[in-house]
């Protein structure tokens, strides 16, 4: 079962919720955790995995064999992104415009184009002290396209999930999504069984929640809501969720001591163990299936 934790608005507590959910789940389940916020990956700061493996990822960009090229211009014609230009007796490739679709290589009548990996980031993986199989995508500074990294990250499978004594365990995947409501969020959500939306009770939280709910509905993914920092702002979020038939699965009140502990890098259930039962209950409701 794949659960995505998303929000729309940044800083509402996605990572706070996803890391605590993972720690509670690992008491009984085999957990795989993917930090999908490749621009600003932070879950490792809380889960402290030993990242013992790293793989470079990127997109396949064209390289033109100048001896074989006849400057016919077909590659430039098929490229939708103007990443190849043919002028006179020269063929120019602009790696940062390339989306890695492969059309230029396929369409070249001289087979003068090969493809090479242009590294845009890495995938780090390892295991946390509790035995969570952990991986994160990290985009290199200055790069623009995170989605290809995300696509590779979602394919990552740990060498083996840690064995547990006793009964066979459920396999759970928890994905920490990036903020926003554009392509990286959609790519994170694709293939999810359900989405947990973390919001805060302010007009910003509500506005951005609506954007992600629209994506979840379009993809047909059932959604539930966690209201974080409950007590600040107003309860327009609660009212809208009730109107829209979105279940509110957990409310986490604004408490300064929690904010301080999280600021220092502790997870919520570690800093405030009284939240463990609430997270266990949240998990069971998710696994049983949220009813939209």
């Amino acid at each position: 079962m794949r659960i995505v934790v998303a929000s729309g608005k940044g800083g509402t507590g996605k990572t706070t919720v996803s890391t605590s959910l993972a720690q509670v789940a690992t008491e009984r389940d085999a957990v795989r955790f993917l930090d999908c916020d490749v621009e600003a990956p932070n879950a490792a700061l809380f889960l402290h995995p030993v990242l013992d493996s790293q793989r470079e990822v990127g997109i396949r960009v064209p390289r033109v064999d100048a001896d074989a090229c006849t400057y016919c211009g077909r590659c430039a014609e098929v490229c939708q992104f103007h990443a190849i230009a043919v002028v006179g007796q020269k063929t120019l490739v602009f790696d940062d415009l390339c989306h890695g679709c492969g059309s230029c290589a396929w369409m070249c009548p001289e087979q003068a184009i090969s493809e090479t990996l242009s590294v845009t980031g890495v995938i780090d993986s390892g295991t946390t002290p509790e035995g969570i199989a952990f991986a994160q995508g990290v985009m290199n500074v200055g790069q623009t396209m995170g989605v290809p990294i995300l696509r590779e990250l979602k394919k990552w499978t740990p060498a083996r999930l840690p064995e547990a004594p006793g009964a066979p365990r459920r396999a759970l995947e928890i994905l920490d999504a990036p903020p926003g409501a554009s392509c990286p969020v959609v790519e994170t959500l694709r293939g999810a069984d359900l989405v947990l939306l973390v919001t805060e009770p302010t007009p910003f939280g509500l506005h951005d929640l609506k954007q992600v709910v629209a994506i979840a509905r379009e993809l047909g993914i059932p959604a539930g809501v966690v209201i974080n920092r409950d007590g600040i702002g107003d309860d327009a979020v609660g009212a809208w969720c009730a109107e829209s038939g979105l279940p509110i699965l957990l409310r986490i009140p604004m408490e300064r001591r929690i904010a301080e502990a999280i600021a220092g890098g502790r997870t919520l259930v570690d800093a405030a163990p009284e939240y463990r039962p609430g997270f266990r209950d949240l998990l069971e409701r998710l696994v049983a299936g949220v009813n939209p």
Partner: peptide
């Protein structure tokens, strides 16, 4: 913001 996440992401944003 003075959180481990805020600091981590500040470095990357400054780099950009």
């Amino acid at each position: 913001e003075p959180t481990v996440s805020g600091i981590h992401d500040l470095r990357r944003a400054l780099g950009t």
